[in-house]
């Protein structure tokens, strides 16, 4: 008896969400199979890779990242260099300087940075806030306003500030809304429900369902994404069919494995290599679990993951 392959066909699919405009526009989602299960059906638009840059410039970046951006003097320079990175589909600007417990930059200053970056590149732009819900609730609507017509994705609207960000990005200024929840399928769904109840079209929503570096409670990330994709495809759960975007770099470069110096951990070897490993492996695991887009920052990671995606679809 020959092998009887039984493909898993789903009539449902993940919604396709466009980011950016013009030639370099990308579409997230659209697949009607589990991640990379091309033997079952359509993989849609294929996963995308974003390059993270920060309003804080390059001072705190790993050496190899600094080296890549050598010679860049302005945020516009950095942004241009980021979009030119091999394997990059879009650029993600993190406005981490807005954190009231950090640099606490003003909203005007950050909006100006976002504008500078958006004007410098032709690739789609994702703008991430500073993670402080109060500040983001004020900052991201202003960014959405300033970047009208660019079709950017704002990360993130959370349970606490989804109204302001959802209304500004999704309704007033016709951008895309990132819905961020904390590694739980029900929270993810609930947030999508309330955002769409605001009037935001489901096709304008991308989820960030939470993440971690591998080894750091990543089990929850795997199961959350596994379950979301299963509910979206096999149960046709419309409130979980939004594509998933996962910021990887901000998690992986903050763990010990990517930060401990070679003096502190001589047996661990080269610091840069460790950082790349953490980033690459976390990205691969996320893509296999269900991320439709990952955000990375090291040129080698971006190139490797982009290549892997290409090989798998």
């Amino acid at each position: 008896m020959p092998f009887n392959c039984k493909p898993q066909k789903f009539s449902a699919s993940i919604k396709a969400v466009d980011l950016g405009t013009g030639d370099k526009k990308v579409t997230l989602g659209g697949e009607s199979v589990f991640p990379f299960y091309s033997f079952d059906g359509s993989e849609g638009n294929g996963a995308k890779v974003g390059v993270e840059i920060s309003d804080m410039g390059l001072d705190h970046e790993p050496e190899a990242v600094k080296a890549y951006y050598a010679g860049c003097e302005t945020m516009a320079d950095i942004a241009k260099k980021a979009e030119a990175m091999e394997g990059a589909d879009f650029v993600c600007l993190r406005l981490e300087g807005g954190d009231p417990n950090g640099a606490d930059k003003s909203i005007e200053e950050l909006v100006a940075v976002a504008k500078e970056v958006a004007d410098a590149i032709t690739a789609p732009l994702v703008v991430e806030g500073c993670k402080n819900v109060e500040k983001d609730g004020q900052l991201l609507p202003k960014v959405a306003e300033a970047l009208q017509g660019k079709n950017v994705l704002l990360l993130s609207a959370k349970e606490e500030d989804y109204k302001a960000i959802g209304a500004a990005a999704g309704l007033a200024y016709d951008q895309k809304v990132g819905a961020e929840s904390a590694v739980d399928i029900n929270l993810a769904k609930q947030l999508n429900v309330v955002i769409t109840q605001l009037g935001v079209k489901p096709e304008s929503v991308v989820m960030n369902v939470g993440t971690a570096a591998v080894g750091y409670g990543y089990d929850y990330v795997i199961s959350t994404m596994d379950r979301i994709k299963a509910a979206a495809l096999s149960q046709d759960d419309k409130m979980l069919q939004m594509p998933i975007i996962t910021p990887i770099a901000s998690e992986t470069w903050a763990v010990k494995e990517s930060m401990a110096t070679e003096e502190d951990a001589p047996e661990w070897g080269n610091l840069d290599a460790r950082g790349v490993s953490m980033e690459v492996q976390t990205a691969a695991a996320s893509l296999v679990s269900g991320s439709d887009a990952v955000i990375l920052k090291h040129p080698q990671s971006v190139a490797t993951i982009a290549k892997m995606i290409k090989e798998l679809i």
Partner: peptide
């Protein structure tokens, strides 16, 4: 297998194979 590869990989495995 070197440390750079092992640190994330074994961490991932440890997470993946835990009892939920």
């Amino acid at each position: 297998m070197d440390y750079a590869m092992a640190l994330p990989l074994y961490g991932l495995r440890q997470n993946l194979f835990t009892d939920p």
